[in-house]
Design a protein around this nucleic acid. Structure first.
Length: 210
DNA sequence: AACATGATGATCT
DNA sequence: GATCATCATGTTA
């Protein structure tokens, strides 16, 4: 299966780039959690870009607030927030310091610590349902708001190179569950991957560089 | 398959 | 007080 021993942690430089580029280049990378003495990991298969400017759907759209100020900090940190009173969403801060922007992690393919992830999500559960949703994968990996601001280049939460995807394997669609800027094609996911969230957009999505 | 709904609370105007 | 980048479960067909 997946042998993570030879994988290299992505450097901070990787995140100091346009949000859209970082989002697309995150597909296929390995998200590793070393939380609560448990090692778990998954391959990133679905993400969304939230731009720092010209994006009405972004949390950063109306300037920094206590919740969102991390986005104006250095890239390569986690932005974690509570949604609908019950779930946490994991984002990666992008762009140079003082420029907001982030990538929402929407789905992972579980690769390490499956039983631990299942029990965090509660039994019984199919493997596909462990991480096919932003609120699901944070549960499976043990991520909470305590990890807001976490440095993604080191424990307990980091991203390693994994197996990056070719343009032909990447599909694009509008983002899910937003009201504003609902038409922008800023959701990137692995084509024909069973671990992505279930949406009509999956059917007629086009490749990243068709 | 598609759609509707309730749970639940921080955040911001 | 309204909003919200969700999930699980229920109903309808």
């Amino acid at each position: 299966m997946s042998d993570l021993h030879n994988e290299v942690i992505l450097p901070r430089k990787f995140y100091r780039d346009s949000t859209k580029t970082v989002a697309r280049n995150l597909l296929g990378r390995t998200l590793v959690s070393n939380i609560d003495q448990v090692l778990t990991a998954g391959r990133i298969v679905e993400v969304e870009a939230y731009l720092g400017s010209g994006d009405a759907a972004a949390h950063s759209a109306n300037g920094p607030t206590p919740r969102t100020r991390i986005q104006w900090g250095p890239p390569g940190n986690a932005y974690v927030y509570l949604i609908y009173g019950m779930y946490c969403c994991l984002n990666f801060v992008t762009e140079p310091e003082d420029t907001p922007g982030c990538v929402l992690i929407r789905a992972i393919k579980p690769v390490l610590g499956l039983e631990h992830m299942k029990s965090r999500r509660k039994f019984p559960r199919k493997v596909v349902d462990i991480g096919n949703g932003p609120g699901k994968l944070t549960q499976a990996l043990g991520i909470s708001r305590d990890h807001n601001g976490a440095d993604l280049t080191r424990n307990p939460l980091y991203v390693s190179d994994g197996s990056p995807k070719k343009d032909k394997e990447v599909a694009v669609s509008p983002r899910i569950g937003i009201r504003h800027a609902a038409e922008l094609p800023l959701r990137f996911f692995v084509r024909n991957c069973e671990f992505v969230t279930k949406h009509a957009f999956n059917r007629y999505a086009t490749g990243f560089a068709d």
